[in-house]
Each structure stands twice: as C-alpha cells, then as structure tokens.
C-alpha cells in the first residue's frame, strides 16, 4: 500500500460518497483520474485490503435485539476443525479463536449470533453446543445491551 492508497483509505473510511460517480468524486480530491481510482480500489479488493464495499447494518434498528457473543472453552487439539464447523453455520456472523485469560476467562472460541427474539438466539446457541459436543468444557453468552461506538477504522493523518 503506497501513499495514494493510504489517502484513499482515509477518504473512504467514514464512507463512500453517496453521489452518482463516487470514484470520480474521490479522484477529484486526489488529483487522479476516475479510472485510476477505480483501478486502485479494484486492486485493494483483489488483495483483500478491502473485503467489499457494503452497507453495515445497525443490528438493533433492523430488529436484531438479541446479539450474543457466544464463548466456548474448547479442547485446543480440536479447535481448528470445530472452528470451521461453527463458522460454517448460517447464523454465525464471526468466528474466531482468541487467547484464554485464566482463571477468569477460560474461553478460546468466539462465535457471534444475532436474533430478533431471545428464543431464536437460544436455539442458535443450542445448535453450536451440539456441534461442539464433548470437546466443549464450558461456555457463556455475552449479550450486548448497547452500542457505545461504531465508527470503524480511523487511520491517523
């Protein structure tokens, strides 16, 4: 990533311009052509710097009031296989392995679930528990009660 890419990230991190030709609008600010900006954005997407250009929903406002971070203490020797299986469940939006902080925090597998009702998330959690089976030694679900901040990435000037 060079200086121009960095500037492109800075210019779009709060959002893509909501105008008919958003890449031309960015080009104007950078002294580039529209095609140059398009080429760079495509290259960044190809290389995975940009996952995609997309809408980020507000869970709560769309009716998903039961957003649970489910956390599991899973046998380390099985976590790769189980993490893949849990990540493949249609209702899991994020799935990661993270470090334990013993003794207070014994959990090493994280999976986010989202439901419009508590029953929906309870059912999702039951499915995860079934998939993990005996490899799971303990679990918890941390429901979010409030979004305190959600701005996304902000690169320094």
């Amino acid at each position: 990533m060079d200086e121009i890419d960095y500037r492109l990230v800075q210019l779009t991190q709060s959002g893509l311009p909501l105008v008919s030709q958003p890449f031309a609008a960015l080009a104007l600010q950078l002294g580039l052509t529209e095609q140059q900006v398009i080429d760079r954005m495509m290259a960044m997407q190809q290389h995975g710097l940009i996952r995609r250009i997309a809408a980020v929903p507000n869970h709560y406002r769309l009716g998903y009031r039961h957003n649970g971070m489910t956390v599991w203490d899973v046998d380390d020797s099985q976590i790769d296989v189980l993490g893949q299986q849990i990540g493949a469940l249609s209702f899991v939006s994020h799935c990661y392995q993270r470090p334990r902080h013993l003794p207070a925090w014994p959990y090493n597998l994280f999976a986010m679930v989202h439901g419009k009702t508590r029953e929906e998330t309870t059912q999702q959690i039951a499915v995860i528990r079934t998939v993990l089976g005996d490899a799971c030694r303990g679990s918890d679900t941390l429901y979010s009660t409030r979004i305190l901040k959600k701005t996304g990435l902000r690169l320094p000037e």
């Binding site: 990533m1 991190q13 893509l16 954005m41 995975g48 959600k150």
Partner: peptide
C-alpha cells in the same frame, strides 16, 4: 439511481445503517 441514492441517505440518517463504504482488512495493510 436517484431513488437509490435518496433512500441510502435516508437509511443512513435514520440510523438503519451505521456505515456505507469499504470494509477494510487492516491486517492486509500491515
């Protein structure tokens, strides 16, 4: 196109969307 842009602005203003733009993978930028 104009209808889409209008709706998108309204959805942002109403807080239905928290953001509309590139989703970055900062690890790929180092």
């Amino acid at each position: 196109e104009a209808t889409l842009l209008q709706r998108l602005v309204s959805l942002m203003d109403a807080g239905m969307l928290t953001r509309f733009g590139p989703l970055f993978q900062i690890e790929k930028m180092g």
